[in-house]
Simulated assay, not measured.
Amino acid sequence: MSHVSDVNPLLDVRDLVVRHGTRTVVDHVSFDISPGETLGLIGPSGCGKSSTAMAVLQLRRPDSGEVWFDGQELTAMDERRLRPLRQTMQPVFQDPYGSLSPRHRIRDAIAEPLHVQGSWDRTTGPARVAELLERVGLDPTHGDRRPHELSGGQCQRAGIARALACEPKLLILDEPVSALDPSLRAGILNLLAELQERLGLGYLFICHDRALVRHFCDRVAEMRDGRLSSS
């Protein structure tokens, strides 16, 4: 668990509403996350956790409400203005294999965000990828492999390395350890804690495991039927 300073929020979600058809799946949800802080979002399947994450990332535009990130309001922005901000707010998904293309080598998957961002340099890029692999506890030679040649834990580490490529300020961690064997979960959680301490990252940590969330997170918000209560 990190020590959070008294600063302006990195992420400030205000009165967020998301509807699927006639059903409201996120119902006037508000929360904030400071730099270096982890907010845990817990609740049963179907309660609106992942819909909230998608709306924060602007992968699914909310029906109403505001999402302020790093001092800028995202919901009114067009895609061109959103693009540079997307790079500093990155997701890490539940399925470590599903989040990486099975056809691409790990090094190419990690390099892809740099190509998309337009910051890939063929001279320094390979060293940057190797540095990212080492930062998440993988040997640079793992970059030559494809996802099916890695364990679930190694694959999730590669996914975290990919998320770090664009030097984000916030990670949206959607059930990042629930698909892993219990023996591997502690290693990933320790890695996330170390990265947060070193880089000052904010985390939105989505999980259904109440004990894990209370152990790992600075604050906890519980979601039921699209609504939120904090503790």
Rank of each mutant, 00 (worst) to 15 (best):
M1Q: 03
V4F: 01
V17M: 06
T22H: 08
T22K: 07
D27A: 10
G40Y: 09
I42F: 01
I42T: 12
C47W: 03
S50V: 10
S50F: 09
T52V: 15
A55G: 13
A55T: 08
L57E: 09
L57F: 10
L57N: 12
Q58V: 01
R61I: 02
R61V: 03
G65D: 03
F69L: 04
E73A: 05
T75M: 00
A76D: 10
R80L: 04
R80I: 12
R80C: 06
R83S: 07
P84L: 07
M89W: 02
M89L: 05
F93L: 09
Q94V: 00
P96L: 07
L100R: 02
S101W: 01
R105E: 14
R107V: 11
D108F: 06
A109I: 00
A109N: 00
A111H: 14
P113N: 14
P113M: 14
P113D: 04
H115W: 15
Q117Y: 14
G118N: 09
P126S: 11
E131M: 13
E134Q: 14
E134G: 03
E134C: 11
G137M: 04
L138Y: 05
P140N: 04
P140S: 15
H142M: 15
G143A: 06
H148V: 01
L150H: 14
G152Y: 02
G152T: 00
R157Q: 04
R157A: 01
R157E: 01
G159L: 08
G159Y: 08
L170Y: 06
L170M: 11
L171M: 07
L173P: 04
D174S: 06
P176I: 10
D181F: 09
S183L: 13
S183Q: 13
L184D: 11
R185A: 05
A186K: 12
L189T: 02
L189M: 13
N190Y: 14
N190M: 07
L191V: 12
L192R: 00
Q196H: 11
L201K: 04
G202W: 11
Y203P: 11
L204N: 12
L212M: 13
L212T: 08
V213C: 11
A221K: 03
E222F: 15
R224G: 05
L228P: 00
S230T: 12
